[in-house]
Amino acid sequence: MFLSKYISEVFGGVKSLLTGMRRTGYYFTHHKNIITQQYPNQKPVLAERFRGEVVMTHDENNEHACTGCTACELACPNGTIKIVTKFDITPEGKKKKAIDTFVYHLELCTMCNLCVDACPTGAITMSNSFEHSVFDRSELTKVLNKPGSKIREGVE
């Protein structure tokens, strides 16, 4: 009684170990299952929606759609965005608010997408770039509007 239990215990144990070894042995001999991606040589395929950093889209005329309404600045939970506005004089002689600089602190950003969601004109989007490492963190503070750019006609 005791002996048969003992023997079945030993055999059951050995069998369970062999099952595991068969599984690892299978992967040892089947190299096509290898999932390693060799990163710098093999760039990952990122999804279209992947949130890497906030960018402002500029068209070919170096125009963007940012009105400087600061909706994104208000929506941002971390104070990542700072908008400096100025007043442009329209041809009619009226003063019109516009952005001077759109400062974006990438080092504070958590890629939560709330600013993009809040933007009424679709001026900012999330880009796919994810390789953000730099040697000096001050390089992570970016100005998103390109020099000399101005607001696209008709965007209010």
Partner: peptide, 23 residues
């Protein structure tokens, strides 16, 4: 990543629903 835009901290839920439609 494809639907929410991030792999770990997605921030996909917003009050009233979700941020984007499904991919």
């Amino acid at each position: 990543e494809e639907t929410c835009g991030a792999r770990l901290t997605m921030n996909y839920m917003v009050p009233g629903g979700v941020m984007f439609d499904l991919h």
